[in-house]
């Protein structure tokens, strides 16, 4: 469904312009990463791309189809910053999506496997640990078999091993040529998996660069300062 084309997008809530003058084109497969300070508008932009928010101005199209069109959202899946666990078992959470999307039930096992949750398939999803919930949320999103996967800080608060498991799930997804658009504050992680980086500052995009150049020579001053703060030893 690529390319994603955003033209002069603005989002206002309560008369506050939370996103403004957003111009962005995402044409290539792989992992695009959104970075920026807390409250910069990353989650908001992600939700706009997924068609959950009606923009106040401008346009946002997936290969010519408006993002808010159900036909484009139907081919995407999103893992929210605080993922919702349906009040049922781990398996029940995945089966819910399989049934919703008319996928065969026997794919359950395979999804549980990639999330490494086979042994907990009957446990209540809400009793899983934070990292396990994240893994389940990603597995559930992958069960939709989307063409685009949005991930909003999927590894915040996770230990290195849990982070690694989630990154391997992301690799698994890109391997199936799923476009991944992800928010993260973890610079090291972004370096590991990003193909290109979009930097957002106070509701506007300051740059969109290939990962290689972004981490060595960012174009915008804001991105430079952001990276500098992370590299500095505390």
């Amino acid at each position: 469904m690529l390319p994603l084309q955003i033209r002069q997008l603005a989002v206002c809530i309560d008369n506050k312009a939370l996103l403004h003058n957003i111009d962005l084109t995402l044409a290539d497969k792989g992992v695009s990463i959104l970075m920026g300070h807390n409250g910069a508008g990353k989650s908001l932009l992600l939700r706009c791309m997924h068609g959950l928010i009606e923009p106040a101005a401008g346009s946002l199209q997936w290969a010519g189809i408006h993002a808010t069109d159900i036909n484009s959202r139907h081919r995407q899946a999103m893992v929210f910053q605080k993922p919702l666990m349906l009040n049922r078992s781990v398996a029940g959470n995945i089966l819910y999506v399989l049934k919703l999307r008319n996928k065969p039930k026997d794919r359950l096992q395979q999804h549980l496997q990639t999330a490494e949750l086979e042994s907990q398939s009957r446990q209540s999803a809400r009793s899983l640990s934070g990292g396990e919930q994240q893994r389940l949320a990603i597995a559930r999103a992958l069960a939709c078999e989307p063409e685009v996967l949005f991930l909003d800080e999927p590894t915040a608060n996770l230990d290195p091993e849990a982070t690694q498991k989630i990154e391997s799930q992301i690799h698994h997804a890109t391997g199936k040529s799923i476009k991944v658009i992800m928010v993260t504050h973890d610079v090291a992680q972004a370096r590991r998996i990003a193909d290109d980086v979009v930097f957002i500052h106070k509701g506007a995009i300051t740059e969109h660069t290939k990962a290689k150049t972004f981490f060595t020579t960012p174009e915008s001053k804001q991105a430079h300062d952001y990276l500098a703060a992370y590299v500095k030893p505390v």
Binding site: R47, L52, I70, R73, Q76, F80, L84, N87, R88, L100
Partner: peptide, 21 residues
Amino acid sequence: DPMHSLCVPTTSAVQTLLWDN
């Protein structure tokens, strides 16, 4: 948001919420 994200029709959303509550 999650229900809209998954494009769950209203009738199914009602069932889901009733069951989860």
